[in-house]
């Protein structure tokens, strides 16, 4: 089972990212589950969403305490919330930021967790280019897909168009396509 935890802020489409990942995995023929860290958070408050992907039916409903994958949609959370809590030793961390990982003041964490692979890329900027709005969620999902191959690009695209029918969906697929290329070109394959 792959357990994914997504951090962001209310209004950034964090829950949608989890849904898209689960839906894409389902389209790939896997079992998948997505749910938010339920709360009464308003726009801007830190929020968390979870996704589990497995070849077996998923019965657990506890929050993801020990993520294999951490998607951080808002890098301002890095030093506000303990986003790394319970991280698996060989976890993948993907951060939405225009800065390189080395410039995110995470040296201590990186040194202490040599097995963790951490990447950053400007998902908001890429979304801004096509959508005119800095939604990083599509970028995080697409980036995860292309880095790990755990969900197929085709299924991610299909999930996007199912979730967002019409023009918005098309634009978001364009964002995803750009992210696939960007990540493939700029980040090392896991």
């Amino acid at each position: 089972m792959i357990q994914i935890r997504i951090h962001g802020r209310g209004g950034q489409g964090v829950v949608t990212a989890a849904e898209l990942l689960a839906l894409a995995a389902f389209r790939d023929g896997k079992e998948a589950q997505a749910f938010p860290s339920f709360g009464s958070e308003r726009t801007g408050a830190p929020v968390t969403a979870f996704c589990r992907i497995d070849s077996q039916p998923i019965r657990s409903r506890e929050p993801v305490y020990h993520p294999d994958v951490l998607l951080i949609q808002d890098s301002t959370l890095l030093h506000q919330v303990d986003v790394f809590a319970g991280l698996a030793q060989s976890a993948l961390v993907l951060i939405n930021s225009t800065r390189h990982v080395d410039a995110l003041h995470l040296t201590d964490f990186v040194t202490q967790h040599p097995g963790v692979q951490m990447y950053s890329f400007p998902a908001s900027d890429l979304a801004m280019k096509h959508l005119g709005r800095p939604f990083a969620n599509i970028g995080m999902v697409a980036g995860y897909a292309v880095l790990t191959g755990e969900v197929s690009k085709a299924s991610v695209n299909q999930a996007i168009t199912e979730k967002f029918p019409g023009k918005i969906g098309e634009l978001n697929v364009t964002v995803a396509a750009e992210v696939y290329d960007y990540v493939a070109a700029n980040l090392a394959k896991v």
Binding site: E31, F38, I58
Partner: peptide, 12 residues
Amino acid sequence: MDGYILTHAYEV
């Protein structure tokens, strides 16, 4: 049905 845990969970 459990609030949030089921009502807000996406699954098959």
